[in-house]
Deep mutational scan, measured.
Amino acid sequence: AEIMKKTDFDKVASEYTKIGTISTTGEMSPLDAREDLIKKADEKGADVVVLTSGQTENKIHGTADIYKKK
């Protein structure tokens, strides 16, 4: 799966169907969080990951919607 910015995804959204939401939390780098989200998306058969939230304090927390091409 590839990560797309919401603004970029909005241009092609009609080509995809939302298949779920994924999240990651833990003591990790932003890059590790990104890789974890991609891994989870791949496991669910998603083609595209669109980040919906991200937070960093002591731990990273990120959520994303996942989509499959129609």
Score class of each variant (00 low, 15 high):
Ile22His: 00
Ala46Glu: 00
Lys6Gly: 06
Leu37Pro: 00
Leu31Tyr: 09
Asp47Tyr: 03
Thr7Glu: 15
Ala41Met: 02
Glu35Ile: 14
Thr52Pro: 10
Ile3Pro: 02
Asp36Ile: 09
Ala33Ser: 07
Val12Lys: 05
Asp65Gly: 03
Gly26Cys: 14
Asp10Gln: 11
Leu31His: 13
Glu15Arg: 09
Leu37Val: 03
Asp65Thr: 06
Thr21Asp: 04
Thr56Ser: 11
Asp42Cys: 14
Thr24Cys: 14
Ile19Gly: 01
Ser23Met: 12
Thr56His: 11
Lys5Ser: 15
Ser14Cys: 15
Ala64Tyr: 14
Asp8Phe: 05
Thr7Trp: 08
Ile60Met: 14
Lys40Ala: 05
Gly26Ile: 14
Val48Asn: 01
Val12Leu: 07
Ser29Met: 08
Lys18Met: 08
Lys59His: 12
Lys69Thr: 03
Gly45Gln: 05
Glu15Lys: 10
Ala41Lys: 01
Thr21Leu: 04
Asp8Arg: 03
Lys6Glu: 09
Thr24His: 04
Ser23His: 12
Lys40Met: 09
Lys11Asn: 06
Gly26Trp: 07
Thr17Met: 11
Ile60Gly: 12
Glu57Trp: 06
Asp42Thr: 15
Ile19Cys: 07
Lys68Gly: 03
Ala64Asn: 03
Ala33Asn: 05
Ile60Phe: 15
Tyr16Val: 02
Asp10Val: 08
Lys44Arg: 14
Gly20Phe: 03
Thr21Lys: 06
Lys69Glu: 04
Lys11Ile: 08
Ile60Lys: 09
Thr7Met: 10
Ile3Arg: 01
Thr25Ser: 14
Ile38His: 03
Pro30Glu: 14
Leu51Glu: 02
Glu57Gly: 13
Ile66Lys: 02
Lys6Ile: 07
Val49Tyr: 01
Gly62Met: 15
Lys70Gln: 07
Val50His: 00
Ser53Trp: 13
Lys70Val: 09
Val48Thr: 02
Asp32Ile: 07
Ser23Ile: 09
Lys18Trp: 15
Ala33Ile: 11
Ser53Lys: 08
Met28Ile: 06
Met4His: 02
Asp32Gln: 14
Ala64Lys: 02
Thr25His: 11
Ile22Gly: 00
Asp36Trp: 14
Thr56Ile: 12
Glu57Asn: 11
Ser14Trp: 13
Ala46Phe: 00
Met4Thr: 01
Glu15Tyr: 11
Ala64Trp: 06
Ile38Gly: 02
Thr25Tyr: 11
His61Gly: 13
Asp47Val: 05
Lys40Thr: 04
Ile66Asn: 01
Lys70Leu: 08
Tyr67Pro: 03
Lys18Pro: 05
Thr52His: 13
Lys6Tyr: 05
Gly45Glu: 05
Asp47Phe: 03
Gly45Thr: 04
Ile19Tyr: 01
Asp47Thr: 07
Glu27Ser: 13
Gly26Lys: 12
Glu2Arg: 15
Asp32Glu: 14
Ile19Asp: 02
Thr56Tyr: 10
Met4Phe: 05
Tyr67Ile: 03
Val49Lys: 00
Asn58Pro: 10
Asp10Trp: 08
Lys44Ser: 08
Arg34Cys: 14
Ile22Met: 02
Tyr16Trp: 02
Ala13Glu: 06
Lys69Ser: 05
Gly20Cys: 07
Ile19Phe: 03
Asp8Gly: 02
Lys70Ser: 07
Phe9Ile: 01
Thr63Trp: 07
Ala41Asp: 01
Thr24Phe: 14
Arg34Asn: 07
Asp47Gln: 06
Ile3Thr: 02
Ser23Arg: 11
Thr24Trp: 13
Ile66Asp: 03
Ile38Ala: 04
Gly45Cys: 11
Lys44Asn: 07
Lys70Thr: 09
Lys69Ala: 05
Glu57His: 09
Asp47Arg: 03
Asp47Glu: 05
Ala1His: 02
Leu31Thr: 10
Glu57Leu: 10
Ala1Leu: 09
Ile66Cys: 04
Leu51Ile: 15
Lys69Gln: 04
Ser29Asp: 13
Ile19Pro: 04
Lys39Arg: 14
Gly45Val: 02
Ile66Thr: 01
Val12Phe: 05
Thr52Leu: 09
Thr21Gln: 09
Ile3Glu: 03
Lys40Tyr: 05
Lys11Asp: 04
Thr25Lys: 10
Pro30Ala: 13
Val49Thr: 00
Thr17Trp: 13
Glu15Val: 04
Met28Asn: 07
Leu51Arg: 02
Ala46Lys: 00
Thr56Asp: 14
Lys39Ile: 06
Tyr67Lys: 03
Thr24Lys: 01
Gln55Asn: 12
Ile22Ser: 02
Thr17Gln: 08
Glu57Cys: 12
Val48Gln: 01
Ala33Leu: 10
Lys6Gln: 13
Gly62Thr: 15
Lys59Gly: 13
Ile3Ala: 03
Asp47Lys: 03
Met28Pro: 05
Gly54Arg: 06
Tyr67Gly: 03
Glu15Trp: 13
Tyr67Met: 03
Phe9Cys: 02
Leu51Tyr: 06
Glu15Ser: 09
Met28Trp: 05
Asp8Tyr: 04
Lys6Cys: 07
Ile3Leu: 08
Glu15Ala: 08
Ala1Ser: 05
Thr7Leu: 10
Thr52Glu: 08
Thr7Ile: 11
Ile38Lys: 08
Gly20Arg: 00
Lys70Glu: 05
